[in-house]
């Protein structure tokens, strides 16, 4: 089985979820894995990073117009690489960019597509791909019935190989005829919030709810997040009240997250919120209402006043992490 992985670049580096796709490809039983990079950044730098375990071949495209990312043009490059490699499967990490690209690539290859896959099971040549639906309230297991199959894989669930492979991957520059209409969407600017971890990617998340009473108390959440090296998240009530931006909202109409550690502070645990975080590895809840639904899904809970507990917990975690 030939598997092609899209390597997504940001600021000259290949992003971690793309490397995680290598493990997913290995699990699918790939006999040969190739990667495709669609970027104007120095091909040699990217290729150096791309030489990870198992990658036999790297497809690149030499076109200065990729200095401004275009979803349409990138989809065309990936589809052409898939054809050149005779790929049976294309895997694209389900990042913001990947969720946009994968359906396009599937249409270009007349392939069936399963989004945001959290688990694969393989039986002979049959692949079953599981993806969460209803924001995680249920899972659907699907089979792609076309010859070529496209999957996007949810970040944080597979391990990126640590070792760089000593084997040289062969590099093939694709020759494509891209015209101006292929670049009809152009990314002009990436505006990052400085120094802030994004809930969608964070390994640890500390989320605050309305029980914090007001935005003036958010410092308690930020202090705990800093001690844990965590991103801050917010419940819907907090976002709707205007204390925090919606980009931090966790839940059914916010982001679905699966960090290693999820700490919910003064969050009651409405079903929409639980849907967005219930696949987290370890869940901690702190709430003064012993009957809050969040306690039913947590691994560790503290029934108590967040204003009392948080400063102590921040201190205790600092102590543990210092040792």
């Amino acid at each position: 089985m030939n598997i092609l992985i899209y390597f997504e670049e940001r600021n000259g580096s290949i992003r971690k979820p793309s490397f995680e796709a290598i493990e997913a490809a290995t699990k699918l039983g790939a006999s040969s894995i190739a990667a495709v990079v669609a970027s104007a950044s120095s091909a040699s730098v990217l290729n150096e990073q791309a030489k990870r375990a198992g990658i036999a071949k790297i497809f690149t495209v030499d076109d200065a117009r990729f200095g401004e990312y275009s979803s349409k043009a990138a989809a065309k490059v990936i589809a052409e690489a898939a054809k050149a490699f005779n790929a049976d499967v294309v895997i694209i990490a389900a990042t913001s960019r990947g969720k946009d690209l994968a359906p396009r690539v599937a249409v270009r290859l007349a392939a069936g597509y399963v989004p945001d896959v959290t688990n694969f099971s393989v039986n002979g040549s049959t692949i079953h791909a599981t993806h969460p639906v209803y924001a995680g309230k249920a899972n659907v297991t699907m089979e792609v019935t076309t010859a070529v199959k496209v999957f996007s894989t949810r970040p944080n669930l597979w391990k990126a190989p640590k070792e760089l492979s000593t084997n040289e991957a062969s590099v093939e520059a694709l020759s494509l005829n891209l015209d101006e209409s292929d670049f009809s969407d152009r990314t002009k600017e990436l505006m990052l919030s400085q120094g802030k971890l994004d809930v969608a990617e964070a390994d640890i998340i500390v989320t605050g709810g309305r029980g914090l009473k007001g935005p003036e108390n958010w410092g308690l959440i930020e202090n705990l997040a800093t001690s844990l090296g965590a991103a801050t998240g917010a419940s819907r009530a907090v976002v709707d009240a205007g204390w925090r931006p919606h980009s931090e909202q966790v839940g059914q109409t916010g982001k679905t997250v699966s960090p290693t550690l999820y700490v919910a502070i003064a969050v009651s645990g409405a079903i929409q919120h639980l849907a967005g975080m219930s696949s987290s590895k370890t869940i901690v809840a702190i709430n003064k209402d012993a009957n809050a639904p969040i306690f039913a899904v947590c691994d560790y809970g503290i029934v108590g006043d967040a204003f009392e507990v948080l400063p102590q917990l921040t201190e205790a975690i600092n102590n543990v992490r210092r040792h």
Partner: peptide, 26 residues
Amino acid sequence: PRTSVIKMDKPEKKRIGKILQVDGNA
């Protein structure tokens, strides 16, 4: 269709559920 649903099920993850009470000593 290019895909078919094999099954739908609900995620069942066992949680430890260890709940601590503050009882005056945060």
